[in-house]
Design a protein around this nucleic acid. Sequence first.
DNA 1: CGCCTCTATGTCGGTTCTGATATGCTTCGC
DNA 2: GCGAAGCATATCAGAACCGACATAGAGGCG
Lengths: 107, 107
Amino acid sequence: MRSAKRERLERAGWKVGTVRQFLGLSEEEEVFLELKLALARSLRERRARRGMTQAQLARLIASSQSRVAKMEAGDRTVSLDLLVRSLLAIGTSKRELAQIIAPRRAA
Amino acid sequence: MRSAKRERLERAGWKVGTVRQFLGLSEEEEVFLELKLALARSLRERRARRGMTQAQLARLIASSQSRVAKMEAGDRTVSLDLLVRSLLAIGTSKRELAQIIAPRRAA
DNA sequence: CGCCTCTATGTCGGTTCTGATATGCTTCGC
DNA sequence: GCGAAGCATATCAGAACCGACATAGAGGCG
């Protein structure tokens, strides 16, 4: 993923560092955030594939629409716990969860 | 305190399936608890393999020895967040994390 | 346009999780 | 025996997270 995007940005005049450098994150923190974002994206994708609205998913997991929105947005106030619980609630298996965390194909 | 009962049972050596029926856990809740326990076991194993004490690991993740003990014991008051952060802190990769969640070989 | 549906964002009171601390239990080496 | 090291367990104040609610924005349909 690196070079193509990087090249484009640099040609456009951007000074490119990593997000991690910019925010002053440690290696583990960066991986952790990536993890949350991957789960968030997957949640949205799976919900959409099922034709559910955020409100419907919220009811399913006994939460609220606003929290679902925050989950899918990767808001920092949502825990990994809630993300994983939600994914399980819409029928994600442990194997699929593992696949989300460490995709077999390029991310 | 709905899981005080669960703790007592688990300490008494009950197997998960039985506990699930007895406590009326849903399918997802059971999977979620299995997940936490798998991570907890893995954390202990990896720490031991590194020859670290709980106190050393605690310092590494800016926590306390007692919390590490609770993590490894699968205490209900420890979050998935903390477990995953800890595993990452001792050098677990995303791929290894996925492996813990959905083992390729016999669980 | 108005109305409806879906999603995003901010806030708030209550609950849960966290690090710290104290303390007890084993298991070592002396 | 004694002390030290390592792990388990209980408690507590404060931080983080939660669901609920209000509200705004975006898009579609008549």
